[in-house]
Amino acid sequence: MTLTRERTVAAAPPAPGRRARRSPAAFPVHLAMLSWAVVTALPLLWAVVSSFKTDNEILNEPWSLPASPQLDNWSRAWTQASIGRYFLNSVIVVGGALLLTMLLGSLVAYALARYEFRGNRLIYYVFVAAMFFPVFLALVPLFFVVQQLGLLGTYPGLILVYAAYAVPFTVFFLHAFFRTLPGEVAEAAFMDGCSHSGVFFRVMLPMARPGLVAVGIFNFLGLWNQYLLPLVLNPDPDRYVLAQGLAALSVSQGYRSDWSGLFAGLTIAMLPVLVAYVAFQRHIRAGMTAGAVK
């Protein structure tokens, strides 16, 4: 429901000439808005600038610009501090988990939304109820479940657990979405002799694309930023994901005080998110707020 509203809002063109230019309140309003923009952006910009400074500059002049940009910080963080490896681990784990989540989540949501059978509601609630439990509650037994399956500290282990915890919301979101899709196209496809899975993959899934994009973005960010699950289930430093590696680094670097390297690592961790955001910012904000309103 929210999505349809979202789309109509976005589709309504701004009435030409009605955009207010000046009004008496404009100055204090802009001042308030600008203040928060500075509060938001300043720490981020400061970290980026610091990633180009020498340790000496960082320690003695926190507000200055670098005399000459130290690109070496970045390569040191990428190779010596293993940020590059953590980055790759994150890509593998999140990529695998995202594919699995979207496949399983859309299958379940579609089956529950478009087929009548006994136990349909029950299965729906079994999935959706999991959204209301804190992950902390499951943490201890989950560790032993993963350990007994021999999956502790492995890519498949993390991928399966990530997907298992992302599927409930995906089902919840896409279930509502599949219900709003018209049934005529699917019926026509059945008439033409299309199989059930053929209808799903070739007719319904393409029609559900906006919903898939929204929940896909939401899931990607959630999985990319996951910290608690890898902290417990992924003890092997060679397989650390980015957030985990950065946290470990900030503790150990603190002692060695390679400040510039850590700032560079921090910036590297922020960069892909920033690039994705600049490219898709409208989709991302719509997708994430739609997820919350549901």
Partner: peptide, 28 residues
């Protein structure tokens, strides 16, 4: 075909859910 499709769509996710989500919560 209908039942086969439903089973194929639901069972893998249900197994994953039972092993990694439901059983840990219950055990806790």
């Amino acid at each position: 075909g209908r039942w086969r499709f439903l089973a194929g769509a639901l069972v893998p996710a249900l197994v994953l859910h039972a092993v990694f989500v439901l059983s840990p919560y219950a055990q806790a």
